[in-house]
Amino acid sequence: MKRMKKTWPFHVMLLPAVICLFLFSYLPMGGIIMAFQNYKPWLGLSGSEWVGLDNFRYLFERQDSMQVILNTLVIAVLKIVFNLLIPFGFAILLNEVRKTAVKGTIQTLVYLPHFLSWVILGGILIEMLAVDGFANRILGMFGVDPIFFLGDNNWFRFTVIISDVWKEFGYNTIVFLAALAGVNPTLYEAAEMDGASRFRQTLHITIPSMLPITVVVGTLALGNVLNAGFDQIFNLYNPLVYEKGDIIDTFVYRTAIINGEMGFGTAIGLFKSVISMILILVSYRMAYKWAGYRIF
């Protein structure tokens, strides 16, 4: 039993990963100081002028920044919620299909949109969601008036969230299906013996067995709470929906990337990281306290 107490093998096992982390994550983190500088590339990190919190102040000085942060939060939170719930439900439904060929085909198909970039999908969606586009023609058959999906502030967020869920739900199902496949078949057999209906089996065996992985994925997703999806919004938005559709990342793109204000871009990044860190800490604690579940 002595060998078990030794922990040096643990450190050895972690060594390659830690080296990679150090080189590719922690070394570059030195750049965070740019957030407090009026960074000029030719002056470098040591030579650029220190401006304290000016970069952060600018974010909050803009008349529209509260709206932008709110947009980001609303879109991101709804995306996180639906990107958990829908794959969760879908995995359970798919698991009920017992013909392997049908199951496999469906799974492969729903997985496809994940591979198309938003640049491509943006173009297709703009076409399909046009006032006289495919989606509205279908709705028209049910007597619904044409909807200006991408040009109406009330519809834009809805469109963004639904299209994101549509793109990602198949792919997000993978983890849940893996968890489902890992459920011990004897549990079902025992339930079957007790005469439990399939619905009850689902409720008492399937769902509880998926909860741990759901908590993991959900907690990790919280780190994305200020990432509302730059690629998607950037390819879909337009001045008509600035009010409800402009998010932090599109705003940073317009100022930081196009104007090359790197200090400002870094400041926003840091702001987002700190918020994410707090959220992850909180949810980690909650998962541990209430569910007795350690995520990492």
């Binding site: 150090f22 922690y26 070394l27 570059p28 983190m29 030195g30 750049g31 965070i32 990190l45």
Partner: peptide, 10 residues
């Protein structure tokens, strides 16, 4: 660690 990183970088 972070500090070391920043020093190397700058």
């Amino acid at each position: 660690l972070v500090l070391a990183g920043s020093l190397t970088a700058c």
